[in-house]
Amino acid sequence: MTSGADAVLAGVAVTNFWLLGASRLGHSIRVTAAQGILLGFLPLLAAGADGGALSLRVLALVAASVLLKGLLFPRLLFRGIREASIRREIEPYVGFTTSLVLGLVLLAVSLGIGTRLPLPHRPVSTLAVPIALFTMLSGLFLIVSRRKALTQVLGYLVLEDGIYAFGVLAVGEIPLLVEFGVLLDAFVAVFAMGIAIHRIHREFDHIDADRLKVLRG
């Protein structure tokens, strides 16, 4: 029987492929937000699968992550685009088609590792570990293969989504404090990177990471 968690994980995998193939910045931001929202509801499903009652802890976590990833981050990133008035294309180092094919390779690798990884207790879904690994790997790939500083923020967010999924599904009882700490970290990182992008843009008139090679006094 398919659980809701399986369906959500399948959706997350689709958003990963989508991001690997997306060529527009605004579009990528929206897809990342959708991925964040999808993952935000995972703790609810994970708690439901265990048969346990929905604690206040879980609800607070869901509310916080959906609000942060679905609303606040996209807003910050869109503001980043507007203020830096950058071009809307993504400009990858690795072409979109190649990215998609590499995405398939990453999925295969994560399945290979994910099904062998010894875990302290059985995860909610057998897909949990492979898809979480796949999300981390594709986030990493997005960071190294895209030119714009803003897309690197997106890659970082996807990477964080993967870690979050891994934490919720595979490990289970992470203390609330740690979860919120991770969310806060992500928030501060996006905030700081938004400012950094603004600064880079003001100094150099572009945010192409590959041109930031020479130090200026």
């Binding site: 399986d6 399948a10 995998a13 689709v14 492929f17 193939g21 979109f96 088609t97 998609l100 094919v101 995405g103 398939l104 999925l107 399945l111 897909l127 492979p130």
Partner: peptide, 18 residues
């Protein structure tokens, strides 16, 4: 277009895995 088709292939592969 190749990207659209490779995307379809990726969906199919994902379906196979799931």
């Amino acid at each position: 277009v190749p990207q659209f088709l490779v995307g379809a292939g990726a969906l199919a592969a994902l379906a196979f895995v799931l």
